[in-house]
């Protein structure tokens, strides 16, 4: 089922490139965080990025919506190259949703207001339309009944699902996830992963930093392994897990899969 719908989408938009990184380098002061990153992501593709702590995974996906600046190389997202041009950056951010490890919901706004804020102010939707859309996505992440509550009144898993709904309300073409489940208790991880699997099956282009290997096997088209700021290995999940090529990957997998 999952496979079937995913293939359909791939056929529809095959070949179209959603994100392209060419020779990207980034430094924090003297520290070389990203080293010569080359990556091309097609529309509808679902990529899982993994690697040891401090390897630059967060930095990489934060460069894609310009939360971090890169110093050399090119990043082209949805046809817009990211430079200092603020208009381009705004355009990219409108089309790219992001979900954070610590949810980052706005605590002074209700769940519904969290979801309608950007559609109203950035997409210029009417309040009624924005609320209707928000309720649609809240229903999709299975918490429509929490709409009037404040984030502080929800469990971690519920908060993360609201964060996903909030991003979806902008109707993004690409979704970035930075360890969306690693701040959650085990029983909550499942409910968030279910939502992400559902999203993957709908054909969303996804870039996901996670150590949930079950999720990677189930939905990823490609798994990318990073270490010390470089992409060491990328492959289909089956090949990646069953037949890792580099020593570092083997070591990492042995640690993470016990």
């Amino acid at each position: 089922m999952a496979q079937a719908s995913a293939q359909k989408v791939e056929k529809n938009e095959a070949g179209e490139v959603a994100i392209q990184l060419l020779g990207v380098n980034k430094w924090y002061g003297e520290f070389h965080v990203l080293r010569d990153i080359n990556l091309s992501v097609d529309r509808g593709e679902r990529i899982v990025i993994c690697g040891p702590s401090g390897s630059g995974k967060s930095t990489l996906i934060r460069c894609i919506n310009r939360l971090e600046e890169h110093q050399s190389g090119q990043i082209i997202v949805d046809g817009n190259e990211l430079t200092n041009d603020l208009k381009r950056i705004d355009e990219v951010r409108r089309e790219v949703g992001m979900v954070f490890q610590h949810f980052n919901l706005f605590p002074h706004l209700t769940v519904l207001e969290n979801c309608t804020l950007a559609p109203i102010w950035v997409r210029k939707m009417s309040k009624a339309d924005a609320e209707a859309a928000a309720m649609k996505y809240l229903t999709r992440v299975k918490i429509p009944e929490q709409a009037k509550k404040y984030p502080g009144q929800l469990s971690g898993g519920q908060q993360q699902r609201v964060a996903i709904a909030r991003s979806l309300c902008m109707n993004p073409k690409i979704m970035l996830f930075d360890e969306p489940t690693s701040a959650l208790d085990p029983e909550m991880i499942k409910e968030v992963l279910e939502v992400m699997v559902d999203l993957a099956q709908s054909g969303m282009t996804m870039l996901c930093v996670t150590h949930e290997m079950g999720f990677a096997r189930q939905v990823a088209n490609r798994v990318i392994f990073m270490d010390q700021g470089q992409i060491i290995e990328q492959n289909s999940p089956v090949e990646f897990f069953n037949n890792p090529k580099s020593e570092r990957t083997k070591l990492f997998l042995s640690q993470i899969l016990h």
């Binding site: 954070f100 980052n104 804020l117």
Partner: peptide, 27 residues
């Protein structure tokens, strides 16, 4: 105000003044 609030607002495409007015200053 934690950095995450700024980042979430930026990631949603809010401009500087909107981010300040709607997210950061109220808190």
């Amino acid at each position: 105000i934690p950095r995450g609030q700024y980042e979430a607002a930026q990631a949603l495409g809010l401009s500087y003044w909107r981010m300040m007015n709607l997210i950061v200053l109220p808190q």
